[in-house]
Simulated assay, not measured.
Amino acid sequence: MSTAIVNPLVQEVLDLIGIFAFALSGALLAVRKRFDAVGIAVLAEVTALGGGVFRDLVIGAVPPVAFTDMQYFLTPFAAAALAFFWHPRLARIRRFVLLFDAVGLGVFCVAGTIKALNHGLHPLPAIALGAATAIGGGALRDVLAGDVPALLHPESEIYAVPALVGSSLVALLAVLHDLTPLTAALAALAVRLLALRYGWRAPLARGVSSR
């Protein structure tokens, strides 16, 4: 294992921010789908922890930190409770789902790449694993909610590209020994929000209609 490229406390803070943001996106989607309290909690947990658990299993960090650190396990419940009691005051819930999903995407692609690099992975697979960390929970959330994952939906704005941008920036800055996680997270968040604002989508196969 290589020397850590970022302070473990920074890694934990990034993880917890991403967990809360993704959990809130999952809980708000559950509210919009009219799930009960159990369904809201389950969707919050799966959305928040799915990508991180996959990351930890791949790099051999077992048992995954989500099951050894109670902060990781309990934070999604706090987000679920917030959505359960306060959702009537959140106008246009879909907009909030997309916003918190974008925040989680930006933070998790950075946190996932950093952890992969800390465990000695080459920058290229670290980029891939960072992106998988960011999109994994959201994909599981959509499947459980009965939707086509944003990652695969032809009418959805680009989803994996912002995660790859953030992960690639982390790897590049780490190689240059000038890693600033906030910069990479904001870059990924900005690309995702711009995609939502302007409807950027990945191209379809040649000759395939968008309708």
Rank of each mutant, 00 (worst) to 15 (best):
P162S: 09
A150Q: 07
T47S: 14
R34V: 06
I59G: 04
D36M: 01
G39A: 00
L90T: 05
R201H: 05
E157M: 04
R34F: 07
D69S: 07
G52V: 06
D147R: 11
M1A: 09
A188H: 07
G130L: 06
E12D: 13
A132P: 00
A139E: 02
V191Q: 07
P76E: 11
S168L: 08
S167G: 15
R95K: 10
F96S: 14
D142M: 03
D101L: 02
L14R: 01
A185G: 11
P123N: 06
A139T: 15
L14S: 01
P64L: 11
A4P: 01
L49E: 02
V42M: 14
G104Q: 01
A205F: 14
S210T: 08
A83S: 05
A205R: 06
H87N: 12
L90R: 05
R192T: 08
I40P: 02
A205Y: 04
I127N: 05
R206K: 11
P125W: 09
A91P: 01
A78W: 06
I59M: 03
D147H: 14
L24F: 12
T133I: 02
V143L: 15
T47C: 05
F73N: 08
C109L: 03
A187G: 03
L152F: 15
S25L: 04
Y72P: 00
A160K: 01
R55Q: 12
A126P: 11
A187T: 04
L24W: 04
A145L: 08
L151N: 07
R197N: 06
D101F: 10
A30S: 11
R89W: 12
L124F: 13
T3M: 12
A139H: 01
V13D: 01
P125S: 04
L176H: 09
L82H: 00
A188R: 12
Q11M: 13
A160I: 13
R141W: 00
F20S: 07
V107Q: 09
R92S: 08
G60I: 04
G112T: 11
A128G: 15
V143H: 03
V31Y: 05
N118H: 09
F54I: 15
A37E: 10
L29S: 09
P88R: 14
R201P: 02
F35I: 01
L151G: 13
